[in-house]
């Protein structure tokens, strides 16, 4: 899910429960599923920092590692604490709060503990944010139950507030699950944007994603449910923005661990 708005964002809050990820088999090389929230600090969306959870499969072992990363300064992937061998099922909370008023650095908090500070960013505020899952290496034979990324931004009054639904767009690409397709490239996400009413607007409470284990030919003819494949109702402008975000993500994946 992407949030693009004219209102300034000065920080970000994201919380979600770590899900139990199921991998269909051993991984010959590291497979990483990232649940990441990225905060862009320029309008071109070329500078940013991010945090989230990395669920890694290597061989038959799975680890859960929270992390943060400063893309702007290429300062690398920062592990937060030590990796766990499984999900603790708890909701975990990530926050980025300006180091000071007007600062272009942000303090990163994980479960309310300060875990690091970004390098200097081009701007003390943002108009763009992205949250959700990024998968590498094992698309088909893997699944996880529903996660709910509950994301808010810090406004100019230093209050965390929810995004107006109208300022968000979503994208959830699906694989090829036609009859006869290769199982490794057959996948889908079930997604939804949960909202709450606030005056005349709808505000985003969470970006909900489930990844079921699917096989070719088992669902390909089934039309996506309304509201689940929300990318399909995005307008052209949003499509372009999302495509661009995807490109950024693809590039960024190269510099993760």
């Amino acid at each position: 899910m992407c949030a693009d708005q004219s209102q300034y964002m000065y920080g970000v809050f994201a919380t979600f429960a770590y899900p139990g990820v199921t991998f269909g088999g051993a991984a010959s090389w590291p497979v990483d599923f990232y649940n990441e929230t990225e905060f862009f600090t320029d309008d071109l969306m070329t500078k940013s920092f991010a945090f989230g959870l990395d669920v890694r499969r290597q061989g038959t072992a799975t680890t859960y590692q929270p992390y943060w990363i400063d893309y702007t300064n290429f300062s690398g992937y920062r592990s937060i604490g030590t990796a766990a061998g499984g999900s603790d099922l708890k909701v975990h909370t990530f926050m980025a709060i300006p180091s000071c008023s007007g600062c272009t650095t942000w303090d990163i908090f994980y479960d309310y503990v300060h875990v690091g500070t970004t390098g200097g960013q081009p701007s003390p505020s943002s108009h763009h944010l992205m949250t959700g899952w990024l998968l590498t290496g094992m698309y088909g034979p893997s699944s996880f139950p529903q996660t709910r990324n509950r994301v808010m931004f810090l406004d100019g009054n230093y209050q965390f507030v929810r995004f107006d639904r109208a300022a968000t767009s979503v994208r959830a690409p699906a694989g090829d699950c036609s009859i006869g397709a290769h199982p490794d490239y057959c996948w889908r996400f079930d997604t939804a944007v949960s909202t709450a009413s606030g005056g005349t607007a709808q505000y985003v409470t969470s970006w909900d994603v489930t990844k079921p284990m699917v096989q070719p030919g088992t669902f390909a003819t089934t039309a996506p449910e309304a509201g689940q494949r929300a990318a399909q109702d995005a307008d052209d402008e949003t499509d372009q923005l999302v495509e661009r975000a995807q490109q950024i993500v693809d590039q960024r994946l190269k510099i993760r661990r």
Binding site: A17, D88, V91, R150
Partner: peptide, 12 residues
């Protein structure tokens, strides 16, 4: 409201 109905999962 902030953390969701599952806020207590995992012994919280």
């Amino acid at each position: 409201n902030i953390w969701g109905d599952g806020y207590a999962a995992g012994g919280q």
